[in-house]
Amino acid sequence: MEVRTIKVFTTVDNINLHTQVVDMSMTYGQQFGPTYLDGADVTKIKPHNSHEGKTFYVLPNDDTLRVEAFEYYHTTDPSFLGRYMSALNHTKKWKYPQVNGLTSIKWADNNCYLATALLTLQQIELKFNPPALQDAYYRARAGEAANFCALILAYCNKTVGELGDVRETMSYLFQHANLDSCKRVLNVVCKTCGQQQTTLKGVEAVMYMGTLSYEQFKKGVQIPCTCGKQATKYLVQQESPFVMMSAPPAQYELKHGTFTCASEYTGNYQCGHYKHITSKETLYCIDGALLTKSSEYKGPITDVFYKENSYTTTIK
């Protein structure tokens, strides 16, 4: 009895394709271990004539594949690729409408935090270190965002349907971005203890939790000093293409032309909904596939993004 075979390709990165001759009487799992086709788990399936010449994702289970996976995804987590594939199996079914010149995501599976993050990423200057993220990001900007969303979920250790947080998501993504040249110098002034300067680099240099107003941050924000008295913390120097200011959701007025974009969060910790506000020729609110415009805006804002380049204080 002759062994019926077909020729397929296996890959971990969709760049390096490895030619395989597979036995049609055995499952993919018996031949390769966990195997995925377009995100779908085909591990328990036997090869079919229609699979001839198709590319299958496999887990990096030998040295060659491990090197290829690390170079593309910059992670050695053995569960990463499987999590990416199972997320992709959902995100490829989502709709990605162009809204006001940006790629958004039609609401499904509690994905409003991903839509808000995706919209924000198209408006701030950011370059990702893992080629996987950078490639998928370019495709997302062009309207094909399924891979990018699935990668975000995998890097953030999230599953489809789980509630997510924009600030946490951005923080994970910033860790995989090139923020080497970003720098922030802060000064804390206390009447009792004097003053202390701190220099922050990388992710810490672009994120701040405690106030939404970048102007206020430049002037000074009140913080408790270690001595128990009130101290003032203010920005001395900022070198970065953008800054992200966050605070627990509270009524906040966004003035046209003073910011790049913002995240609105309605609801409580267990259950809520994100919308995205962007400042173009007027203010726009993007909620999944829905767009509304207004000249002014007041609502429960939790993150505001500002364009920056270089700032030095005039406070002496």
Rank of each mutant, 00 (worst) to 15 (best):
Y138N: 13
D303G: 00
G272N: 07
G82Q: 14
T292M: 10
S246T: 02
S246L: 05
Y155G: 05
T55S: 13
G202L: 04
K293M: 08
W94D: 05
G29L: 08
E52G: 11
G299D: 01
F80I: 06
L291A: 12
F242Y: 02
R66V: 14
A289R: 03
H48D: 15
V42S: 08
W94V: 05
H256Y: 08
G101S: 06
L114M: 08
M209N: 14
P130Y: 06
M209F: 15
N110A: 02
C285K: 00
S310F: 14
I286Y: 04
Y96G: 09
C227Q: 02
Y269S: 13
V160R: 05
T116H: 02
S50M: 13
F128K: 04
K219C: 09
I45Y: 13
F305Y: 00
Q134D: 02
F148C: 04
P34N: 11
A140P: 07
T226P: 14
V304C: 06
Y72L: 09
T169I: 11
F128M: 05
L59M: 11
L153C: 08
Y306M: 01
D77R: 06
I315R: 15
G210F: 00
T314H: 15
N147F: 06
H51L: 04
Q230I: 15
E264T: 03
Y36Q: 10
G101C: 06
E239C: 11
L88Q: 00
T116V: 15
G143P: 05
N178F: 05
K46A: 13
V12Y: 12
S240C: 00
L151T: 03
N16A: 11
Y274A: 09
P130N: 06
G267P: 00
H51P: 05
R139A: 14
A145Q: 04
T211P: 01
Y72Q: 12
A205T: 06
G33C: 04
L235E: 06
Q230C: 06
C225W: 02
F242I: 00
T232Q: 07
I152D: 04
Y96F: 12
N147Q: 12
M26C: 14
G272D: 06
C182M: 03
T75V: 11
G220K: 00
L291S: 15
Y28K: 09
Y269K: 08
F217I: 13
Y252D: 05
N16Q: 09
Q31T: 14
V160A: 03
E281V: 01
K218P: 01
H90S: 11
Y72S: 10
V3E: 15
G257A: 03
D77F: 06
E144C: 11
Y113F: 13
F174N: 00
K316M: 15
L283K: 01
Q20G: 10
I223D: 07
T159L: 05
G143M: 03
Q134V: 09
E239A: 06
V243Q: 00
Y208F: 15
K218Q: 05
Y265R: 04
N178K: 11
E2D: 12
K255T: 09
M85H: 07
F32C: 09
V206E: 04
K316D: 15
F305V: 05
W107K: 03
I6P: 05
K219E: 01
P131F: 01
Y306C: 07
Q222A: 10
L59S: 12
Y306N: 00
N111I: 07
Y297F: 11
L81V: 14
V206G: 00
Y265S: 01
G33D: 05
P300E: 09
Y84T: 00
N49Y: 11
F259R: 02
C261N: 04
P249D: 02
Y208S: 04
G164Q: 05
Y57F: 15
P241C: 06
L290H: 15
K218E: 01
T169W: 04
K219V: 12
Y311L: 02
S310K: 01
V67S: 15
Q238M: 04
E239D: 07
R184Y: 00
K255P: 03
T314E: 12
V8G: 05
C112K: 01
K158N: 04
